[in-house]
Each structure stands twice: as C-alpha cells, then as structure tokens.
C-alpha cells in the first residue's frame, strides 16, 4: 500500500525536476552554457520520444492497426468487429515517403505527398468560403443612423419599456453605433488600399488613404505584438508560481509542516 509520505516524496521529486528544468532553460537569459544545453536536449528528447509513443498508442494502433486486424470482445474473446485488410495498402504508401533519402528513387516519395496535397487542395474552395464568407457579410455594416433620439443606445433594463419599444430600440442604429461602424469600414478600406500594387496612386486622396491604411496596419500589428508580450509575461508568472508556490508547498508537505 502506498502511504501519503511516499506520494508526497514522489510529488516533491517530480516538481523538483521541473524546477531544475525551468532554471536550466531560463539560464540562457544569463548566458548560453552547457547547463542550458543539457536541459534543452532533455526537453527535445522527451518531446520526440513522447510523440513517437503517442503516435503509435493513440493514432496508428486504434485508427489503423485495430481497423485492419479487427477487435475481440473483452469478455467473450470472440470477434466483435471485423478486420479490413485493405488498410494494409496504407503502409507501403506511407513508407514511400522514406524514398526521399534515395538519390535514385526519390521521385517515389512524391506519391504520398501528392495524395496529401490533392486531398488538401480539394478542400480549399469550400474552406475559403466558410472562412471568409461570413467575414464579408459582417464587414457590410450600416454607417448611417436610423434615429437621432439618443446618441447612444438606451439601456432597456429596468427602464419600464414595453417589449415592442425594446424591439424598436434594438432594431435602430444609433449615432454612436453608426460612428463605430464608419470607423470600422474606413479602416477596412484603408487597409485594402495599402495592397493596391497594380497602378500608381497619383491623386492626393488615394495616396493619403493608402498612407492611412499603412498606419492602421501598423497600429494593428502593434496591438498584436502587445498581446503577444502579455502572453509571454503570463508564462513567466506561471513559472514563478511553479517554483515559489507549488514547489515550496510540496517541500512543506514533505517536511510535515
């Protein structure tokens, strides 16, 4: 029987390995040393080894091997699902990919690549429309207000409106919404003009609009970069939590405090 102290000890060893690896990998911020390289190689080796086992256990075995050889019922040990031996054909097709290492027969490696590319290309028309169709619709936004009764959309909760009045409020475009939509549409068009390379933008208006598009794109990239930086901070904070809270807590558990 495993007692609590053994569990605490195992947990402490596990977390200590993690702490060592964290310090090892972050040590590159000081200087690239053998200490860093050691943990980098451990990390890469573990990831590669794990992926290979997972590939067999969770992909090839259930999705290819079991389909090919069939399955037995757990209790009666009689055939439960039949095997489809035609799946064996996939093996040589997949192995053709390794001919990429042969100078004489490397053209054979193009067979599986061609099949994958063909399957991928066939999906693209539908995928393009599913991806961008709704965005095209959503970009066509009303830029003229339908009412001037209020600049912003009124708050309807607890204001004593009837359902008909609420429906009318929700169907109207208020000036603040129209202004928002206008900013969106102008930004969209300005960003588009940045990508006009087919002719020279000679008029002042088009050149200015093009410059505005460049600015809008740069603001967008800045926001994306800011979001990325925040993501990296979150990862550092988590590592600090791992070291100073999780690991220290496991140490306290081990020492019985």
């Amino acid at each position: 029987m495993v007692n609590q102290q053994s569990i605490d000890l195992f947990n402490f060893i596990k977390l200590s390995c993690g702490v060592l690896a964290t310090i090892g990998l972050y040590s590159v911020l000081y200087k690239e040393t053998k200490f860093f390289r050691f943990f980098e190689h451990i990390f890469l080796g573990l990831a590669a080894g794990y992926a290979m086992v997972a590939l067999w256990k969770e992909t090839l075995y259930p999705q290819w091997w079991l389909k090919m050889v069939g399955q037995l019922d757990d209790k009666t040990h009689l055939p439960a699902t039949p095997g489809y031996w035609v799946y064996i054909v996939l093996l040589p097709i997949g192995l053709l990919g390794y001919f990429v290492f042969s100078k004489k027969h490397n053209w054979l490696s193009r067979v599986p690549i061609g099949i994958i590319l063909g399957l991928w290309a066939g999906q693209q028309v539908q995928i393009w429309w599913q991806t961008y169709g709704p965005q095209l619709y959503a970009s066509m936004q009303p830029v003229f207000p339908t009412t001037w009764s209020s600049f912003v959309k009124p708050v309807t909760t607890g204001a004593g409106y009837t359902p008909e009045q609420i429906a009318l409020i929700n169907s109207n475009i208020y000036p603040s919404q129209a202004l928002n939509n206008l900013i969106f549409v102008v930004t969209l068009l300005a960003a588009f003009t940045y990508f006009i390379y087919s002719f020279e933008l000679k008029t002042k208006f088009l050149a200015g609009f093009n410059r505005m598009g460049r600015w809008m794109l740069m603001i967008g990239f800045g926001a994306i970069f800011g979001s990325t930086v925040m993501a990296r901070f979150a990862l550092v904070i988590d590592r600090m939590f791992y070291i100073w809270i999780e690991w220290v807590t496991s140490l306290q558990h081990l020492s019985g405090r």
């Binding site: 709704p134 619709y137 959503a138 990325t228 925040m230 993501a231 901070f233």
Partner: peptide
C-alpha cells in the same frame, strides 16, 4: 486561447463564426 492567438480569433467573433472568446490571462 493564448494572447498570441487571440488577435487572429477576434475577426471570427465579429463575423459570428465563433460565439465567444477568452484571451490570455485577462
């Protein structure tokens, strides 16, 4: 999703292709 993926997910939300998003630690 993470803060890295977040900005590219927002147009999906605006176009109604996804119904809600939580981005990063925020």
């Amino acid at each position: 999703c993470t803060g890295v993926i977040g900005p590219s997910a927002l147009p999906w939300y605006q176009a109604g292709q996804i119904k809600g998003v939580a981005i990063g630690l925020k």
